[in-house]
Amino acid sequence: MYTPDFHYHKAGSVAEAVEMLGHHEDSRLLAGGHSLLPLMRLRLARPATLIDIGGLDELRGIRVHDGHIHIGALTTHGEIARSHDVQHANPLVAEVAGGIGDTQVRNRGTIGGNLAHADPASDWGTIITVMEGSVDVQGPNGSRTIGIADFFQGAFETAVADDEIITGVRVPTLVRQGNGHGHEHGQDHGHDHGHDHGAESISGEVGEYAKMSHPASFYPVIGGAVVINADGGRCVSARVAVGGLVPTPRRAPSVEAALAGQELTAGNLEAAANQLSNDLGDEIIGDVFASADYRRAIAPVEVKHAMLHAIGLAHH
């Protein structure tokens, strides 16, 4: 509850923050503080210097442009969830943002801070992976954009250099979200039923996310995200990503391939979801709450739930 001592600097601009990062050994950026301060309070992190970027309004805000939502790194989960622009341009992103942590986490936690922390089960990691988004960073040599596939380097490791700052996130727009509402176990009493008729009316792009949250931390244990491009009840193509299984968010090409060209029936979705283990390898994460075996077995269920909700076959 009592953090170790540190030096504190408030950055007046991104450029200044970058300069400070290069200047101070063992320095960390302080944005919303929702990943860093909890670690410092338990003395599990002890940076020598904190560079407070919380006042940099240039890193805040949401803009829809060129088929992408551009989200400033300091934008909070709550701001994203409540943004009409996001709700319109990518309702899946708004929905996911509204299901992160609790009200207070959403009020303070930022998308940039969340990505920088690179927790393997982060909602943002999984969603931006399935959306094929990218992360903008700025360093001493200027700006660059890192595709999400290259962003996560391992558990709690990213491609952002020590002297770089995440300035924003780009997420492609998604025309229509599935009719579910961020299906989460324990948060609603809904259950999908084993209906095996197709969703004939489904055309266009639909996306959905399902997760199992830890009952204590509320952090996702497993998250499954899908984007299905459908035409007349048939899957044209699909993207599937999962979080909380391996050290980084992971695309599931076997599931995607199994889905492509298939009629969107509950049976076909389940069969596709069951291909997931082909994409995971052996290094599945496990802990006291959910072992690796369990995560491996349950992940297809989450993916299936997301799919069923996406195409409207889940019943509340």
């Binding site: 324990g186 948060q187 009952p215 204590a216 006291v288």
Partner: peptide
Amino acid sequence: LLTGSMLDYALPRAHL
């Protein structure tokens, strides 16, 4: 103790 904080030891919550 592996469940040594409120992050790991799950207490009943309102929505559960």
